[in-house]
């Protein structure tokens, strides 16, 4: 499923005294099966942008094309679009409402009017993917802990079997373990099920580790777009936008300044480890332990 924005714009309360331009001239393309990270500081229009992807918001200017079709045209059923583009909002655990975890996960598939057996199948499948314990199924979602609730909420979106998964800060407010689990889950969904994933995050490290493409939003429009190394090689510009490059990249840059012959394209701790150890080996003939 391909998402393409052409000169997309969105203005809140257009024409009124409180008019506010949230997005303008947004041009982007998200290919099927890619993993795209969206970064940008608070108020740069990230959340407004992603809500266009499943038609929760409709552009006030320009077009948004899904598989070549304009989402405002009559050919596109918004309901069906929402089943195809799964949206996990910030703090998704706040949307849980049903009596049992099972029923809550089944809310989406039920709205799709599927057969009972199909719903059961999908719920179990989604629960497994989101690491929701079988034992929680008959509990009330309100009995679970914060991290557990979040996984149930994500399972609720996965149960619709979307082709594209959009996640807005899925790891916000979780402890390091919960964070790793959620991000690992997202990675597996991308790798094993070939889902297109769009991840909004404030953590440059997470984006560097997971994404293949990055879109940088600034003041309501796309400031940069490209591969991880293309975007993170423009550190100065990012800093001017209130963003940054991953910590490890800064660290490696300092080493390069001190005269160590390291690659500039290092964005994760794992890459750095490999390169630095290789350097040790070469220079001193020391075997890495």
């Amino acid at each position: 499923m391909e998402i393409k924005a052409e000169q997309l714009g969105y203005t809140y309360m257009a024409g009124g005294p409180m008019e506010k331009v949230a997005l303008h001239d947004v041009n982007l393309e998200i290919k099927s099966g890619s993993f795209v990270g969206i970064i940008g500081h608070t108020g740069s229009g990230k959340s407004t942008l992603i809500q266009h992807f499943n038609g929760l918001m409709k552009p006030t200017g320009g077009r948004l094309l899904i598989d070549g079709k304009d989402i405002t045209s009559k050919e596109v059923s918004l309901r069906e679009l929402r089943f195809k583009v799964g949206m996990v909002f910030q703090y998704p655990e706040h949307q849980l409402f049903d009596e049992t975890v099972y029923d809550d996960i089944a809310f989406g598939p039920k709205n799709m009017k599927l057969e009972e057996s199909e719903i059961r199948q999908r719920v179990q499948d989604a629960a497994k993917a989101a690491q929701v314990d079988e034992a929680w199924m008959d509990k009330s979602p309100f009995e679970l802990s914060g991290g557990q609730k979040r996984r149930v909420a994500i399972a609720g979106v996965l149960a619709m079997r979307p082709e594209v998964l959009v996640l807005d800060e899925p790891a916000a407010g979780l402890d390091p373990k919960g964070r790793d689990e959620i991000l690992q889950m997202v990675e597996e969904l991308h790798r094993q099920r070939h889902m297109t994933v769009i991840l909004v995050s404030h953590s440059m490290e997470d984006i560097a580790k997971l994404a293949t493409q990055i879109i940088v939003m600034n003041e309501g429009t796309v400031a940069m777009q490209g591969t991880v190394s293309e975007v993170f090689s423009r550190g100065d510009e990012l800093q001017r936008m209130g963003l940054d490059v991953p910590q490890i990249t800064l660290f490696v840059q300092r080493l390069i300044q001190k005269g160590y012959p390291l690659s500039k394209d290092i964005f994760t701790v794992e890459q750095a480890q490999k390169e630095i150890l290789a350097l040790f080996q070469k220079e001193q003939g020391v075997k890495p332990c």
């Binding site: 929760l56 309901r79 929402r82 949206m87 909002f89 706040h94 949307q95 809310f107 619709m160």
Partner: peptide
């Protein structure tokens, strides 16, 4: 926010 989140689930 809730209306949006639930609409996203159909």
């Amino acid at each position: 926010k809730l209306m949006k989140a639930q609409s996203a689930r159909g």
